[in-house]
Design a protein around this nucleic acid. Structure first.
Length: 644
RNA sequence: CGCGGAGUAGAGCAGCCUGGUAGCUCGUCGGGCUCAUAACCCGGAGGCCGUGUGGUUCAAAUCCCACCUCCGCAACCA
């Protein structure tokens, strides 16, 4: 009986087609899953899509289709990308799957019965004109922080989950399982930011939109999308609170959830607590991997630096992209992707080191022995180091993969390939070939090379499956198990090698970049489209007339402590009393840039306290791009001028 | 003074926990070789390891302190 191993990725939100940064996770998980399978584990590897929530309802509405139609389309795109990356998930779950939805409802019933869910016990201060709820701490002098009017205690109907009840239990679990949150730095973040200050009960229902799983016993509510999504890890195994499925018994608890570092909070706090409430064991480990950045920036449509996995695979081949992602991503820091570096790694690692090694070795065997693999009858001292390197690589790779150091692991495999290249220089087969008496030695050298390359191919299997197969075919063997790496000599003398075919043809850097450049003409068009969609609904004149715009002069300006993004401005708005406004422009402007300048402010905006500063109004600024904001300065109008 | 991480050759990174003459990949320069995809192998140049002529030590990239810069989390862009 093989030991079970359950590995998951986060399920992808079906808001839009994922970019290569989003796709890194599934490749990472796939490489781990493949390796575990080779190690003999009974692996269950799950991925899928997270399809509910307000955002999706809005996107669908904007696209003029139903939410279901919308998610069907995007889920299809996501699945296509997983497939084009050659990932071997065992299950692709969708949160709109019938059985998931039913199971989630059952689970909720159980939580409710258990008394961990309470309805509308949440009391808030309600401001009628603002239609908003506030907590005690949000109130300003006991009044509405938005408009300053009286608030009254009211209840909004919502369901809450008693997080706080499990706080201690969670702390104990984290304490006694030091590897649960990984890597370490993230663990500190979670503990210091969320757990130590005390857990708040979590609002687990929504009633302002419809696209979600109906709350059991209350039609007006849908289940909060995160809760729905997290449960996929057990509903995918057919979890049923009343009678557990065979799959669940076998695979739960998960060995590892592979997720992005941004959603660790949900996976290391909410998720464990939900499981505790259900009386189920907790996942053994949550690994928050870093992000893949495009150049120095996060990938975003408006920056025009989005790169998609399928485009890359079409251009460079799946394995080249898998290799890039897995080898280039640092273990605990964000990685970067650019076309230049892809081409660089492609040429130097895949074409030169690996591809050329296989090619020259196979070519020599064909040339000198008509393809027939010779028995290694003439060993020499110098062979030993090569063999030792080959034999030692697997255990080191395995060790590194246990702690998700995938890039280091791959690099060990390439070290072996480099050792082979060096061995060729050390033994100089072409020189041996000139001397008839050294035939046996020549045959031995080539045998050692072929066998070492077999080690490379087998070790490459989890990372570059297609390439691995191609190499094995060329070196004339099909022995590809990890066990076969316990000893040196699985290649059979007398067998024939295949035809030497380049695995990766070197790319011309400039030509390739030019081609890519040419294939990306539609960036501006997409930008335009997006802007149109984001426009607000039409308003009537009366609505506009409610906004009081005024010219004001900045008389003083300083940064606000504890707030990185805010500047505190003191303004002359034409009245006698100076006005204070907090504005989120610290990233783009320093106080000197603003003092003395005239700006346009919204003068009748309700005051609001931000990081301890009461802000009266806002100043107009334009978001040129996600990374650039420009304040609208005016000249030629005195402070106090009203605009209409 | 919110929490955490990073600052090492032109670029990207390792080393730091368990102090002992600074390492890898790419690039660059020189040499070797010709089996191979102008590939492969060897060697050189290039770093006062963010700053403090700071502390501990026989010895600090590594431990301690202060400061600077960048990033993430939290707060937050009215």
């Amino acid at each position: 009986m093989n030991k079970p191993y359950y590995i998951t990725t986060a399920i992808a939100y079906t808001s839009r087609k994922p970019h290569i940064g989003n796709s890194y996770e599934i490749v990472l998980a796939d490489a781990l899953a493949r390796f575990k399978r080779m190690q003999g584990y009974d692996v269950f590897f799950q991925t899928g899509t997270d399809e509910h929530g307000q955002k999706i309802e809005e996107y669908a509405a904007a696209a003029g289709i139903s939410p279901k139609e919308y998610v069907d389309k995007v889920a299809g795109e996501i699945k296509d990308i997983c497939d084009c990356l050659n990932t071997t998930y065992d299950k692709f779950i969708r949160t709109t799957d019938k059985d998931h939805e039913e199971s989630v409802q059952k689970i909720f019933k159980k939580l409710i019965d258990k008394g961990d869910v309470y309805k509308s016990a949440y009391e808030g201060w309600y401001c009628v004109p603002c239609e908003s709820f506030f907590t005690d701490s949000q109130l300003v002098d006991g009044k509405c922080p938005d408009c300053g009017r009286e608030v009254r205690k009211e209840q909004e109907e919502a369901y809450f989950f008693k997080m706080s009840k499990y706080q201690k239990q969670l702390e104990e679990y984290i304490e006694s399982n030091p590897d649960f949150i990984y890597p370490e730095s993230r663990k500190k973040e979670m503990i210091n930011n969320f757990i130590k200050p005390g857990l708040q009960d979590l609002c687990i229902s929504r009633s302002t939109f419809k696209w979600g799983i109906p709350f059991p016993g209350d039609e007006k509510h849908v289940i909060y999308v995160w809760v729905d999504a997290l449960l996929n890890y057990i509903t995918g195994l057919g979890y049923d609170p009343d009678n557990q499925s065979e799959m669940y018994k076998k695979y739960w608890p998960a060995d590892v959830h592979i997720i992005g570092k941004d959603i660790l909070r949900f996976h290391t706090i909410y998720w464990p607590i939900m499981l505790m409430a259900l009386g189920e064991p907790l996942p053994k480990q949550v690994f928050g991997h870093p992000w893949l950045l495009s150049g120095n920036d996060k990938m975003s449509k408006s920056k025009g630096n989005v790169i998609y996995a399928d485009d890359l695979c079409n251009r460079f081949g799946v394995d080249a992209i898998r290799y890039y992602l897995l080898s280039e991503m640092p273990h605990a820091q964000d990685g970067t992707i650019t076309y230049e570096t892809i081409i660089e790694r492609f040429n130097s690692d895949l074409a030169n080191t690996l591809g050329n090694l296989v090619n020259r070795t196979v070519a020599m065997n064909n040339k000198y022995f008509d393809g027939v693999i010779q028995a290694p009858t003439a060993a020499e001292e110098i062979d030993e180091d090569l063999k030792a390197t080959a034999l030692g690589t697997l255990s080191n790779v395995a060790k590194l993969l246990d702690t998700y150091k995938v890039s280091d692991a791959i690099s060990l495999v390439f070290d072996l390939a480099k050792r082979c290249n060096k061995y060729i220089d050390e033994t100089m087969p072409w020189a041996l070939a000139k001397d008839e008496e050294k035939k046996a030695r020549l045959g031995t050298v080539l045998y050692n090379l072929l066998e070492s390359i077999r080690f490379v191919a087998v070790l490459l299997k989890p990372f570059m499956p297609e390439t691995s197969d191609k190499i094995l075919e060329q070196i004339g063997t099909d022995v590809n198990t990890l066990e076969s790496l316990d000893s040196f000599g699985a290649i059979k003398a007398g067998d024939k090698v295949g035809v030497a075919t380049p695995l990766f043809s070197r790319l011309d850097v400039e030509k390739t970049l030019a081609e890519i450049e040419a294939s990306l003409p539609d960036l501006n068009e997409e930008k335009e489209e997006e802007k149109e969609i984001e426009g607000l609904a039409e308003i009537v004149y009366d609505d506009f007339a409610k906004v009081e715009l005024r010219v004001a002069e900045v008389t003083d300006c300083q940064p606000i402590k504890r707030a990185k993004k805010l500047l505190q401005l003191t303004l002359n708005d034409g009245t006698k009393t100076p006005r204070t406004i907090a504005s989120g422009i610290a990233k783009w402007y320093s106080p000197e840039d603003l003092i003395g300048k005239k700006v346009i402010i919204v003068a009748n905006l309700a005051p609001r306290t931000l990081c301890g500063v009461e802000s009266h109004g806002m100043l107009l600024a334009g978001e040129v791009s996600e990374e650039d904001v420009k304040v609208a300065f005016v000249e030629g109008m005195p402070a106090g001028t009203q605009l209409s």
